[in-house]
Design a protein around this nucleic acid. Structure first.
Lengths: 73, 73
DNA sequence: CACGATTTGGGTAATTGGGGGG
DNA sequence: GATGTCCCAATTACCCAAATCG
């Protein structure tokens, strides 16, 4: 997995050659999978999904991680 | 943490031998963490992230500070 | 039925984003 | 156009008890 690397002028990530992505909120991930946001929280706690932590301890999820799970499920 | 030193022609700072970095805008930091720019503002107000002030009282953030927070999550 | 392990749901405090206006 | 600030409802994290499963 590519490390999160700051940063392009528009604030997106460079995760690979010519590849940028953004971070998703727990609620967004929840809607994608059709589950409760609390469930997404537990996925992160149990290591089913990697998560990025904000300085205030909230979680954000990398688009590429979510897509990988969607294509693997 | 290295002090900010003289600027290079491309606007980045020299922080050490062979090390340069630049200052990030609130919007850039916001996208890095997947939050709203106003949230970044709050982080600075509550002391969660260090900030540099422009003469017009706007905030800028050191790349190294942001990376430290990302890797500390 | 009892047991441990995992999942679910409630309560609460903290955090966040939208709207408005500077 | 991006930021800084204020108010307020929605979102989230965390703890812990209840429910469910094997």
């Amino acid at each position: 997995m590519s490390p999160l690397k700051a940063v392009t002028p528009d604030g997106t990530f460079v995760t690979g050659p010519g590849t940028t992505e953004r971070l998703l909120t727990p609620g967004e991930v929840a809607r994608i999978f059709g589950v409760d946001p609390k469930t997404v929280n537990r996925w992160a706690l149990t290591g089913r999904i990697p998560s990025v932590r904000t300085p205030s301890r909230q979680r954000r999820y990398r688009e590429s991680d979510i897509n990988a799970l969607l294509n693997a499920g």
